[in-house]
């Protein structure tokens, strides 16, 4: 009991310290690195709270992919001039923002402490209806059955995010290869890991996807791992980035959300409600959606990290 409490206290203090450091540091690179560490500790905290699905997602997307995105952003900023001093926030605004954040923290803290005890929860209802979904993992049942609409729409948001990034392509870059050109890395840890990790990582991603139906895991986490297995050889200059007007690329991007919607509409036709799976068909249909969606999300996440194409120099 006491050691566990001490460990949790240490974890909480570490999360706070890293968050503070992330905001306070003046250098963009240090801030991004601290953000990744912060995300990893947060994932540990979720694991301590018995939420392994959230922990996996936080580690892979929150810390991993967001971290890589931030580091990529830092790299793109390096070549640019320093922002002009008048773009900095003045002391008055800084104080106001500080007061606002403090007030929000106090309000949220008070609200959390005042929540009814025990907190009302839908978990018993989820457990009671789990058998009818053909799934063993209650989190997957929520994501793919009870609240499948939200998952479907979020997958469309990921696609929209790719359109957003591509919309920022500089003049003359349209139709080119995604992202900055990566010089070939001949030695060092990246060159080695980029060769060794992908086969292993792909197997792990498939495992995470497959067990997702009955155990912690699922498509978003698997897609994040798959995207990383593409990004590493890309960063090492070993794997080329695709052209953004490649037909196969755009088809893969759209396939997951499109299949999800079509199966949903099929449910409307066959069962009288959008996203209703016919009896006995729930598991195979969900599996089909998850597999295709994993491919779409993995490609989308990788393209988000690669960024818009650059005009040829």
């Amino acid at each position: 009991m006491i050691p566990a409490l001490a460990a949790d206290g240490l974890l909480a203090a570490g999360i706070l310290a890293l968050a503070l450091g992330c905001v306070a540091t003046r250098r963009a690179f240090a801030s991004a690195a601290l953000f990744i560490a912060y995300g990893l500790l947060l994932a540990l905290a979720w694991a301590r709270l018995d939420a392994p699905d959230v922990a996996l997602t936080e580690a892979s997307i929150g810390a991993g992919l967001s971290g890589v995105l931030l580091l990529g952003g830092v790299r793109r900023l390096e070549g640019l001039a320093e922002p002009s001093p008048d773009a900095e926030t003045g002391p008055l605004l800084t104080i106001l923002i500080g007061i606002g954040c403090a007030a929000l923290t106090v309000a949220i803290g008070a609200a959390v402490l005042l929540l009814p005890d025990p907190t009302p929860s839908l978990a018993p209802q989820v457990a009671a209806n789990l058998a009818t979904t053909d799934l063993g993992n209650p989190v997957t049942a929520v994501l793919m059955s009870f609240r499948a609409l939200d998952t479907l729409l979020e997958s469309a948001v990921v696609l929209l995010a790719v359109v957003c990034v591509w919309a920022l392509t500089p003049e003359g870059g349209w139709g080119g290869v995604a992202g900055l050109r990566q010089p070939v890395v001949r030695d060092g840890p990246l060159a080695l890991l980029a060769r060794v990790l992908p086969p292993l990582g792909i197997v792990i991603a498939i495992h995470i996807l497959w067990v997702g139906a009955d155990a912690p895991g699922g498509k978003f986490q698997a897609a994040a791992v798959l995207a990383a297995m593409w990004l590493m050889p890309w960063m090492a200059g070993l794997a080329p980035a695709p052209r953004i007007d490649a037909r196969w690329l755009r088809l893969v991007l759209a396939a997951g959300p499109a299949l999800f919607i079509l199966i949903g509409l099929g449910g409307a036709l066959a069962e009288g409600a959008f996203l209703a799976y016919p009896p006995g068909w729930a598991k195979p249909l969900i599996l089909a959606i998850e597999i295709v969606l994993t491919a779409s999300i993995a490609v989308a996440l990788a393209l988000l990290v690669m960024g818009p194409p650059e005009p040829p120099r």
Binding site: L153, A156, P257, F274
Partner: peptide
């Protein structure tokens, strides 16, 4: 005719069109 489908269609059809717009060019 199932009228209760209409709001769902008003949401999902434009989402589907948005998704299809990417490969269509």
């Amino acid at each position: 005719m199932a009228w209760d489908m209409l709001p769902m269609l008003a949401v999902m059809l434009p989402v589907l069109a948005m998704v299809a717009a990417v490969p269509l060019g």
